[in-house]
Nucleic acid binder design. Structure first.
Lengths: 330, 330
DNA sequence: TGTAAAAATGTAATCGATTACATTTGATTT
DNA sequence: AAATCAAATGTAATCGATTACATTTTTACA
């Protein structure tokens, strides 16, 4: 057990101010029942002694830690990190801190992290699920959870996500308006709601435009760079590859672009429609239609909702969908 | 004050196992003085009641939270995030959690975050300083701090950083070996040790090769994208721009590349030497010499050292320098 | 001025663990 | 079988706050 060199406690403050610890506590917590003169005395004592409240002791009694956990598959990932940034900024405004937990996109680890957060007694959690499985989230007892970017089966709770359907639909529609009639599709893991929704947006847009669905140019991967590489290779290996290709996320786009570069394929007439704003999209030697997600805003909204829940908002789960932003890079 | 629905405590376990709370605590903490039979009884009771220790209560008594704080200017930044990732992974292995604090590269906010971590009673902190000012770090009383990526004046403590000098020196030397005689330099904020060290590496490499130092092609920015853009513009506006240019970090490189792209400058003969591995370096239409920093390893080493300090390692501050990796992209 | 009601403050229990110290149990020795 | 010592366990104080309830002080009004 580590020693602490003489810490100043409420007791010391009370003694110094000539009041009881109860009064000190009241001043600390802004209880209006304390007479102004008394409160001033206490504040002076606090100032004089350089008192700082022991949050751990407070947490023990109040059962709130003013910490929340955030679980994501990983953090070395622009997308997740921007969300985390939004979360952190919003929470700090309200005096909450963020504890980082990576789940490695693995249900077992996700469970562990939930237990850990439980044990740390966080006031709530923001989770970017690693898959559509989420029944283990119920281990996080009696504290609110807000899901981000993806929803899960069998666990009804608040969620904040992009409008994946509309984002995809609009991008496809834009391409069609520009004359595209054959649009390839490199999808993500259909285990994830976002991937599913984007696929549906794509299909519906085709349908609404009376375009046929050509399954030979619809391929599914897993949102990782390598799968973008492989799928693009497959696609370009076809007799007549499509000139318009929708790619479901940043990383697959990256992998696909890498393939195009390495293969030396002619990309002059190519149009890539893709989710997520790449800082370097401008450098690609083809034109892009980017469906940008408001990542920080997603995080911020999720944090905001979580705080409302922590503060007692009772209401059926909310699903907040934020609009995407289409960016054309020629 | 929030209620907790009947929580299982040591008391319940003690009663159920027919022992005292002291014994339960001993079992919980692996005290070898407990007879095996008794310990088994206790473990059964724990199992049966689904007991989980209240870490907050434990922290109050032991004065250790098994949490550490990490302060960085921001987190929407590949470089910092990869460091955080390394930190998180290593700490989790040892049962520690990470609390995220962004300082916005602002000393005032940095101070605030330190106070916050103090109040949360974290066991230590990892800090990526926003500037070379660090005297306020001493507010973080009696708990260890490990600095990352940058050192500060007036505060002697452990630090983990890349070998900025050698990384730069080697890249310049490589270029010289390839025939370069005039190498431009786009530097970072000289307020940061990393920027200073890179500049020194550059100068020394020139000197060792008997190359003259041409101040007209040495410009300083602030590590941000915009400054890379502006400096590259300035440089390319000269009568005879250098064909080899060292750029001090990722973001400045990004800005510089953006300028080159927008301006339509001829980049055929251009060679960019640059710190930090860009995922898209391969897409730039010029050859690059990348000085990659082992970001996750930096984080991991910092976490490792911090834990050693927490566990009582007494010794004068260590400065750990990790070697960079040179990557050639033609 | 006396008294009821309201306002301010204090006392002491409590949150859920850990641990110094006290006590009991058990083994060992003679 | 008594004496000694080690091993195992228990008792109760403690960490530093909050707060229900009790008590005192002040205010307001008859």
């Amino acid at each position: 057990m580590k020693k602490k060199s003489h810490t100043v406690t409420v007791k010391d403050v009370a003694r110094n101010a000539g009041v009881s610890t109860a009064t000190v506590s009241r001043v600390l917590n802004g209880d209006p029942k304390v007479k102004k003169d008394t409160a001033d005395l206490v504040r002076e004592a606090i100032e004089e002694l350089g008192y700082r409240m022991n949050q751990v002791a407070r947490s023990l009694k109040t059962n709130e830690t003013h910490s929340i956990g955030i679980i994501a598959p990983e953090f070395s990932n622009d997308f997740f990190m921007n969300i985390v940034t939004g979360v952190e900024k919003e929470l700090k405004k309200h005096g909450y801190s963020v504890i980082l937990c990576s789940s490695s996109e693995n249900t077992g680890k996700e469970k562990e992290q939930i237990q850990l957060l439980n044990d740390k007694n966080v006031d709530g959690a923001i989770i970017i699920p690693g898959s559509s499985l989420g029944s283990h989230f119920s281990l996080f007892r009696e504290k609110p959870i807000v899901l981000v970017d993806r929803m899960v089966d069998g666990f009804e709770t608040d969620a904040v996500l992009s409008d994946n359907f509309k984002g995809t639909y609009d991008a496809v529609q834009y391409s069609v308006n520009k004359g595209a009639v054959r649009i390839g599709f490199l999808g993500g893991n259909m285990n994830l709601t976002s991937a599913k929704e984007r696929y549906e947006g794509y299909l519906t847009a085709l349908k609404d435009n009376n375009l046929s669905v050509d399954e030979s140019i619809i391929l599914f991967g897993d949102y990782h760079s390598q799968s973008g590489y492989v799928l693009m290779k497959t696609l370009m290996g076809q007799t007549v590859p499509p000139e318009h290709i929708f790619i479901s996320n940043y990383f697959m786009h990256l992998g696909a672009a890498r393939y195009l570069l390495e293969s030396g394929n002619d990309v002059k007439g190519l149009h890539i429609l893709s989710f997520d704003d790449l800082p370097l999209a401008a450098f690609f030697p083809y034109s892009s239609i980017i469906v940008a997600q408001p990542m920080e805003e997603i995080g911020q909204k999720a944090a905001d909702l979580l705080i409302k829940r922590i503060q007692g908002l009772k209401e059926k789960p909310r699903i907040i969908r934020l609009p995407t932003i289409m960016k054309i890079v020629d």
